[in-house]
Each structure stands twice: as C-alpha cells, then as structure tokens.
Design a protein around this nucleic acid. Structure first.
Lengths: 231, 231
DNA sequence: AACTTTAGTTAAAGCCGTTTACTTAACGTA
DNA sequence: TACGTTAAGTAAACGGCTTTAACTAAAGTT
C-alpha cells in the first residue's frame, strides 16, 4: 500500500526505541511494554523491531541498561551540584537521592531491582544491563572511596573476616581494581544492602502493612548507615 | 467433542487449582502459570477456571496467599521443633530459616516479595494475599513479643520517636491490637527491613555483582539484628 | 417428571512474540 | 548509467495468551 508511502529519510534508532519503551513503561506499566505497542507508538510494525533487537527480552534488557545509565548520570549530576558540601553531607544526600529517585520512578525501579525477568539462575551472560548496573554501583563505590580517604571509618582487619567471605571480597576487589582494604568493601556491601533493602521494601509496598509513609523509618536507616561509617 | 466425555464424578477445587499453579510456578517459572497451562494440567479447558476465579490475576493473588500460608505454617512448625531452645536461639533460627526457605523457593519468593503485579499503587483493596501476608508478619511479631517479655531489649521512649512515625506506629499497634510499646514496634520494623532486605537482594541476584555466596554476609546481618536486640 | 443449578464445553475476539516471505529505497561500483 | 547488494521496512501467518458469550450435560430439587 504505497498511499502514505513512508519517507525513507531517516531510520529509527535504538535510542528512540528504548525511549518509546520507557514512556510506555512509565505511563502504563511493565506489561504494556510490548513490541507491538512500541512499534505502534513509532508508526512502525512489530517485526521491524527485530532489525534492532533479537528478541523482546533483549530489548527490555537494553532498556534496563539505559535506566541504569540514567540513574548513574542523575546521581553524578546531583553529586556535582553538592561538590562544595562535606563528604558526610554528600553521602547522606546520595542515600536520600536514591530513595527519592526510586519512589519517583517506581515502574523503572521494579524493572531494574525487582525479580529478574526469567529468574535467570546460572545465566553467566554478562549483558549490557549488567554492565550498566556495575557502572552504577561503581559511582556509589567512588563516593565510598572518597569517604574512606577523607575520613576513614572503622573496619575489621582482613584476618577477622570469615574466610569464605574474605576470598570473595578479594576476588571482587581484584576484578574491579578497587584499591581498598577488604573490610572497607565489606562495609560498602553492608551499607548497600541496608540502603537498597529499605528502598525496595518501600517502593514495592512491602511496608504498607504498617506504614503509609516510610520516610521517617528511612531516616533511621540512614542514621544506621552513618553510624557504621563513624559519622 | 464428546468422545472422551468428561466423567462428572468430582468437580475441581480451588486448592487443586492453586496447587497446580504452584507446581507450574516452581517447575517452569512465573510466566508459565497461565490459565491454559493450569487447565491443561488438570484435564480441563481454560474458561472453566472462570468458575473459580474472576480473572488470572485473582488466581495469582490467591496463589500468593497460599504461599504465605505455607510460609507461616512452616515457620510455626520450625519454631515448635525448637521450643526447648532459648528465645535468642529461636530468634536467630527464625532468621536463618527465612533465608533458607527463600533461597530454596526463589520463584515463590519472587511472586510474593517482588514488584507487585500491576504496580498496584493506591489500590486499597485488602485481598486474600494481603490477609495471609499479615498473618505471616504476625508470626514473626509473636516471636518478637515473646522476646520482649523474656529479655526486653533497649528501645527509645515514645517521645523520642519522630511524630509522623509515632502516629503511624500507634495506628498500626491499635489496628493490630499489639500490646507493645511503640519503640518496640519500631525495632521490629527495623529488624524486618534488615532481614527481608538482605534476603531479597540475595534471592533476586542483586549481590552477584560482588558475591557468589552471600551466606557469610547474611550472618553479619543477623549479628546486626542481634546487636539491636541486645543479644 | 419438570425445573434449576453446577461445572464444564466450544467458538470467537483481540491481544501477544516471532518467523517467513516480500517490497522498495538507497548505495556502491563497474 | 545500469546493476547487484544492502537496509529497513511491510503483510501474513502461527501458536499462545486472557476473556466473553453461548451452549450442554449431569446432578440436585421440588
């Protein structure tokens, strides 16, 4: 049907596709992010998207990667805007910012930090989303690094760490080339579990059985983290 | 096709349906739990299931409720088997047991504690799954209650709790008829966030960027909880 | 025996991911 | 400039999904 013949001036781009997917995600939820819906929004047909992604799942994984990048860039920008503040203030701000972003983007958060897509168990496939996720983690790690150099917090010596855990931490440190003591990485992980655990429960509504507004509880969580960091 | 006409000896039951759904969940993952698959497994056709549930989502919610009940009953049984132990030992055992159950049942866990189904935001509908979830929470609360009576742990007085949080805790206490001080409920929530946050991150694979076996880290989380409870 | 209820059926509409085969514009090059 | 190739789409179809509607046979009731 050559009636409204398509202007072949410009092809679609991967960025346009993921942006459209994200808009659908935000406006209508995860199950609305279908190939047909994305294509419809872009004035195309679903099979055309196979020129850009080998499957629906790959597209979603790429979207997750983009979401991580957005998160990383937003955090970096926020931290730059606070460059004049002390490291402790910036650290607390980063925690509060992560919670705010998550509550403001619940559907994005669900896709990134909810149960993984096909419950990928032993899937060793390190894909784009994993890379971007690692980059996001590193942004937090950099903040940690700076904190450690400016105001070292109490850590346990390597010998006091459970051997199994110690080996894993050493592996992680070497793999990521992080020039920090193992006890420092351990505190990093503990803080991250505290922070993301609290945020996940709140965003996913698993605190609503008791609280309608978990902000004051989160403030206490931040205090916990601060305590551990010797603030 | 009335050839193999259905023996109308016995009708299906809701329990059989959710059991079949659970088997599919465990064996093939959440997206395999379709009405057609459930019906197929039971030797029926999909529309027949509408005699028992108004929609696929309601069936899933009912399944989630059953999973909560299973969790609750398992925990109660485990606690009974430890009745001779001291309260502190039972408390730690309960935490370890929750992690073990979750790691042994990752797909069930994902359904119960992952991102909610349609990102139900202001949905005030208190359904079967919510009820069963509350019952599960109460089992942990009972343990907490016992601990408080046998070995009271340090809490902050009501006046020192953030007013907004205090009001919510009071509402929760009155609604659930929990005869404990607000500071006690606060510690309960903090411990629950610590526990479930750590387990969620591990089950969903969000610690794999650093650890392949998070058990030693979880042991430290339990130590944190124990510290807060004055063990 | 006649009627109602129960517990299923089939058929169909409208989604979905994915594959296949086809079209056509644009590009490189002899 | 003509021709082969590639890029980027289309349409049609398959099988699977939820859900609705109309129908039917068995079981229970009066």
């Amino acid at each position: 049907m050559g009636t409204g013949r398509r202007e072949r001036l410009r092809a679609a781009t991967i960025a346009e596709i993921t942006q459209t997917a994200r808009r659908l995600l935000v406006e209508q939820g995860a199950e609305a992010v279908t190939l047909r819906a994305i294509a419809r929004e872009m004035g195309m047909t679903a099979p055309a998207l196979y020129r850009y992604f080998p499957s629906h799942e790959d597209l979603i994984r790429h979207l997750i990667g983009d979401l991580y990048n957005d998160l990383t860039d937003s955090l970096a920008a926020r931290l730059r805007s606070l460059a004049s503040e002390g490291i402790e203030a910036r650290f607390r701000a980063a925690g509060r910012w992560f919670r705010s972003w998550s509550l403001d983007h619940p559907r994005e958060y669900g896709l990134m930090f909810g149960a993984p897509f096909p419950q990928a168990e032993g899937a060793e496939t390190h894909d784009y989303a994993d890379e971007c996720g690692a980059r996001f983690g590193m942004t937090f790690m950099d903040l940690f690094h700076e904190l450690w150099e400016q105001k070292p917090f109490p850590i346990v010596p390597d010998e006091c760490i459970d051997p199994g855990l110690r080996a894993q931490l050493a592996e992680y440190r070497d793999h990521m080339r992080i020039p920090l003591p193992l006890g420092c990485l351990l505190v990093y992980l503990q803080c991250w579990v505290l922070l993301q655990g609290a945020v996940s429960l709140e965003v996913f509504g698993h605190l609503r059985f008791a609280l309608t507004d978990a902000e004051p509880l989160f403030a206490l969580t931040l205090d916990d983290i601060a305590l551990r960091l010797g603030f």
